[in-house]
Nucleic acid binder design. Structure first.
Length: 557
RNA sequence: GCGCCUAUAGCUCAGGGGAUAGAGCGCUGGUCUCCGGAACCAGGUGCCCAGGUUCGAAUCCUGGUAGGCGCACCA
């Protein structure tokens, strides 16, 4: 637990005790004590609304209640410098400044671990994201999913969850055949043979490229292959490998890696699909109609029942997916988190229904839906079309915008905002671009340290020296640094990576403001050493925070 | 028609029961003998509409309106 968290716990306990001592209400009636950081600095470092919450039970006006509580409070116990009653009945606490310099020691001690917490208590969480079909390259929307998913994994891990990062490979089903047909057409085309492109084929450039590679590697020997099915199976196999390799390569460049790449096909091979159908039948949630096997998902709030086995005997996409989710749970994950694009959100109720039919709790599956991304370039909306395969690929995005800016821009917004991605802004190396603003804070500090070491100066952690940090802005910075672990924990609880980005931006703002107003390296050696210690802490937290969202913290830029 | 997401400043977005609703961009003016000006400081307008719950609503509920996305024996 961080120093701030410890202090808050102590203070909460102290408030509870004071409420009881004041004889306001019975112990069992006390609601949970909330401590919040007030927006307004004049309202102290921490505030509680407990007096207002108690109005109904204690049947007195909140300011009176607050006064009674304050009277019983032992201020020394929780590093409190001053207590005020304000507004409708808030109790505002002002912290003892010396307490806050402790955060510098804590950061120095924990280094890259500062920000971690135990709120997740080691709970096993499976986070599945991207999971794009191996039928083409990754695009804009996948990039958002990758940025959000990876940041969430990092944040949940930091908050003490045991996270498995997983990619589900849809390598079975119709789309794989379509992929093979598309490559076949491109292959024949590359050899100058007559062919018609399949109507719903994949028209992306990558298909042409793969076909050309195959021509290079195999020549025209596949044309001679008498058995077309055999040929298609070859294209399917090779296409899968090549496309998957490219996906993996793009993701790695984007700094995203997975613990598990789970193949849909393996569920066919292991018999788990048959198994799960058997289980659903056994539990009585299936029925036959029109030659198909249905799952009664309406029993769990879905709009309509869903087909498991089509009348041609094949499975719908849904069926292996049920087996897959069951598999993830069977592997010991208490919690499943999926990152899905908005175009799949209609799928959520049936998946939750299926899990309930299997006897699981609907809440064990949480789906973070990332809304659509609109790309703007030169002030114009960049049009995309799935049908023609014309779309901005993740690779192009990385080439043009860069990984840092792309990841920052996606992580910066709440997943459920409909995002306007301004490429000109993301590319611009100017003050308009928020990525550089945060990175610049880090580079600037690194620069100060280079200057300092030339002069033989280094940070000092001696309490007498740290006590020289007496400016209001230094105090604010220290407090901001102290909040970092709970910010991360909150981002984890709310599955909201943008909170971390927000925090970093605010921290950078406070730092830049401070840096502009005060010199770090001065004639006063002890003060210089103390300020260097403060800056080292800021740099460490910026680094740790950027790491969570997958953005680099440069020493120079 | 039904479902999900969204609606906050000119634009892009935070805030999601509490005290005077914030930030960036853009606009205007200012800071620089000094550690990196990709910086800092100052200045303006705003919670889609109507009801309801509450001591208190931008926040929760209901009903509208507008936009996005879904509504397959496709994946």
């Amino acid at each position: 637990m961080s120093v701030l968290e410890q202090m808050k716990e102590t203070l909460k306990e102290e408030i509870r005790r004071a409420v009881i001592d004041a004889g306001l209400v019975h112990e069992a009636e006390i609601p949970e004590v909330h401590l919040e950081i007030p927006r307004e600095k004049a309202h102290g470092d921490l505030a509680t609304n407990i007096a207002m919450q108690l109005t109904r039970i204690a049947r007195r006006n909140p300011r009176e209640i607050a006064a009674a509580i304050v009277e019983k409070l032992d201020q020394g116990k929780a590093s409190i410098r001053e207590v005020q009653i304000a507004g409708p009945g808030f109790i505002n606490f002002f912290l003892d400044r010396s307490f806050l310099t402790k955060v510098i020691l804590e950061i120095d001690q924990k280094k890259e671990s500062y920000g971690k917490s135990e709120t997740g208590r080691g709970e096993k969480v499976n986070l599945e994201f991207v999971s794009a079909n191996p039928t083409g390259n990754l695009h804009l929307g996948h990039a958002r999913g990758a940025a959000v998913g990876d940041a969430l994994c990092n944040i949940l891990t930091a908050a003490g969850y045991d996270v498995t990062r997983e990619y589900y490979i849809n390598d079975a089903g119709n789309q794989m055949r379509m992929m093979a047909l598309s490559i076949e057409a491109r292959y024949l085309e590359a050899l100058g043979k007559e062919c018609t492109f399949p109507e719903d084929g994949y028209r992306g450039q990558e298909m042409i490229q793969i076909a050309q590679e195959i021509v290079k590697e195999e020549g025209d020997r596949l044309v001679e292959m008498m058995d077309r099915e055999e040929r298609l199976s070859y294209f399917q196999q090779v296409g899968r490998e090549k496309l998957l390799a490219k996906i993996r390569q793009d993701l790695e460049r984007f700094r995203v890696t997975f613990d598990v790449w789970y193949s849909e096909r393996s569920l066919y091979e292991s018999g788990e699909i048959e198994e799960v159908i058997g289980e659903l039948k056994e539990k009585g949630y299936t029925y036959e109609k029109d030659g198909a096997l249905w799952l009664r998902t309406t029993a769990f709030g879905d709009d309509k029942d869903r087909v498991l086995i089509k009348k041609d005997g094949s499975y719908t996409y849904f069926t292996p997916d049920i087996a897959y989710h069951r598999n993830k749970l069977a592997r010991g994950h208490q919690r499943l988190i999926n990152i899905w694009g908005a175009d799949h959100h209609g799928y959520i109720p049936r998946m939750k229904a299926a899990l309930q039919a299997l006897g699981y709790d609907a809440d064990q599956l949480e789906v973070v839906v990332t809304q659509m991304v609109k790309l703007y370039q030169g002030g114009e909306l960049v049009k995309m079309s799935k049908r023609t395969g014309k779309a901005v690929t993740m690779e192009e995005l990385m080439d043009e915008v860069g990984v840092d800016a792309t990841r920052y821009f996606f992580a910066m917004r709440s997943p459920d905002t409909h995002l306007d991605f301004d490429m000109d802004l993301a590319v611009s190396q100017s003050n308009e671009n928020p990525v550089y603003y945060v990175q610049y804070a880090h580079a600037r500090i690194a620069s100060v340290f280079r200057q300092a070491s030339e002069k033989g100066l280094a940070a000092s952690l001696e309490p007498e020296k740290l006590a020289k940090l007496e400016l209001e802005q230094e105090y604010d910075l220290l407090q901001k640094l102290a909040e970092f672990p709970s910010e991360v924990a909150q981002a984890a609880e709310q599955l909201a990576p943008h909170r971390v980005v927000r925090y970093l931006y605010d921290l950078a703002t406070e730092f830049h403001s401070y840096y502009n107003a005060h010199r770090v390296i001065t004639e006063d050696k002890e003060l210089t050493q103390a300020r260097l210690a403060l800056l080292a802490s800021v740099a460490q937290v910026v680094r740790n925070g950027l790491k969570l969202v997958g953005v680099q913290a440069p020493e120079r830029m």
